[in-house]
Design a protein around this nucleic acid. Structure first.
Lengths: 341, 341
DNA sequence: CTGAAAGCGCTTACAG
DNA sequence: CTGAAAGCGCTTACAG
């Protein structure tokens, strides 16, 4: 339709006011005489004026966009978090720049740098441990970052998550109390903070309480894919294991189907509990008994926390959640389905 | 570390050159004497200078960010497309602003406007038919948009997808040729362009070729959720249907599990083919026979097309794909798994 | 309640 | 190969 883009200057000229006044009405500043506002609004409508957010960002040093780094959108666990983030972001008029890190340290660093170059007002980080370079990047920057639905080795970062230690302990205890003799733990890397300092200790605590000796040969590593879980079935079966707590649903689903295809009766001969509370857990047959997590809420609370941090608010603590340092711990649950007694 | 942010001006001062020169080396302009470039690069490194992309965007009128509207990140079909988009975007140094439209027309319009205000260089749209308002928005704008993995009522929009008509026809024909007597079609809304003009005609063509009368009572609507598919099982069973082609995997998985729970033997008494080639199809037991789609590629090709459009290139046509108007049609496939004979 | 002016941090002709 | 200057489209004190 129009070639020349209409700017705040055009509006000011047509409305016979200054650019400052147009800026005021656009930004809802109350210090504008009603009739002036009315006139300006008319011209804006007539000209179909749309403020240029880039110019606004440069002048105000606020872009109303946040960066979100996600290991993979294709993992339903993270996708559900992202949905919660996006909804709250929209509610607060923020846009999100979303980038996959592919769980690759180099990519994560590059992605964060790119977001910072774009002057995002804050960052939500999903993923596991971070490199010293990325840590430095976060420290040297003044923009707030919150870690959502995961943990990193950087204890200074605010995080929103469940209590992974307790969840793992409960799942393990459940298995032990339901006739399981040899309970395996299936996680990602054992060296990662969330596993090393939370899941494994939770698993060990459950064993100890039940008077069962810890055997590190019963900890299996698998990364987030269905096929790795499927292939793990044979190994885990040969290890004489009769139950497992699996942190990731994709792996749990693969393991379940792998075991079934091997002729193992689940839950008759093998019990299984999964940990991410993804849709997958209800699609498999038998359906997976699971730790439940408020996935959407974890995303939503993360974004909410970030808005507070971006506005320089103090972190509040009135909610029905626990705060540990800079962490917000949401409650998890447990649902018995068909892969356990 | 540093309070004052270092700008191009700081670098220019320290390197004893003009801002224009610094700009040239940052942007890889070859017209810079090697020793000058070296000096500038040193200062940049020393000061840890990072160009401000917002300022650059304002000055150059290019933001190197694209907008991506997605019905739901939580649907693996769209998530896979988004992954392809993101990878190619990263390759070309673009960032993506990703927003869920929740398949809500009002939200989609608002989201697109917000992206345009942020001066994105292009838009990738996923979703079904669009409102006149959104259509107007696209028309009045000069930024390119490509529709990925879906179809809209706006034939002017470039789109990258498979041939939905042919895929539906093939699936239906397969069923008909494998003892199915009464084949249902399970889709979203019948009024949507992709269904009205492609899937339903494909279904009809298959019936006709097999000499089977068309019965519109055999077209069932369900939207993209597992539970709706599950609940559909009883209805579809009571309709005396013995086979179905389902466009969405979530619905297909729900339908499959619903039928199984009703005591219907799949594929013995009921055959099923699904259409989105999502991970879900391999997780269910029995595994779902499916139309296969190059999901990642659809996303990747969409983003590649968009980069060409953003650079004002002509659309090329040398690839192993069909071009229909402004559409790029990628090849689909078929994989027989366990829900068909 | 309103306006003039400077400034945000870059790029882009233009001139040399 | 390099620099001076204008300009991108806003917001932000400041003054009145």
């Amino acid at each position: 339709m129009k070639k020349q883009s209409v700017t705040i200057y055009t509006v000011a000229r047509e409305a016979r006011v200054s650019m400052a006044t147009v800026s005021r009405v656009v930004n809802g500043n109350p210090n504008v005489k009603p009739e002036t506002r009315k006139k300006v609004l008319e011209v804006i409508k007539e000209l179909n004026y749309r403020p240029n957010a880039v110019a606004r960002g440069l002048a105000s040093k606020k872009t109303t966009t946040v960066g979100v780094v996600i290991p993979s959108v294709t993992n339903d666990y993270f996708a559900r978090l992202a949905l919660g983030i996006d909804d709250i972001a929209s509610m607060y008029k923020y846009n999100m720049i979303l980038t996959n890190s592919d769980a690759d340290d180099g990519k994560a660093l590059q992605v964060v740098r790119s977001m910072m170059a774009k002057q995002v007002d804050g960052i939500i980080f999903m993923g596991h441990d971070i490199t010293p370079e990325l840590q430095t990047e976060f420290e040297n920057s003044t923009i707030p970052v919150v870690v959502a639905g995961s943990m990193t080795n950087d204890a200074d970062l605010a995080t929103v998550r469940i209590d992974y230690r307790k969840a793992t302990q409960e799942a393990t205890t459940y298995l032990l109390e339901h006739e399981a003799k040899k309970v395996a733990l299936v996680i990602g890397s054992q060296l990662t903070t969330v596993n090393k300092d939370f899941r494994i200790p939770g698993y060990q605590a459950a064993l100890e309480a039940a008077g069962v000796a810890f055997d590190d040969g019963l900890i299996f590593e698998a990364h987030d894919s269905y096929s790795e879980g499927y292939e793990l079935a044979e190994t885990i079966k040969n290890a004489g294991v009769d139950a497992a707590f699996v942190s990731d649903d994709g792996i749990a689903a693969g393991l379940l189907n792998g075991l079934t295809d091997l002729g193992v009766d689940v839950p008759g001969e093998f019990q299984l509990i999964t940990g991410n509370d993804t849709k997958l857990a209800e699609v498999t047959r038998p359906m997976l008994t699971s730790i439940t997590q408020p996935l959407y809420d974890i995303g939503a609370v993360s974004m909410r926390l970030l808005t507070k941090l971006m506005n320089g608010d103090q972190e509040e603590s009135q909610e029905a959640t626990t705060i540990e340092g800079s962490s917000i711990i949401l409650n998890h649950g447990f649902v018995k389905r068909q892969t356990t007694h």
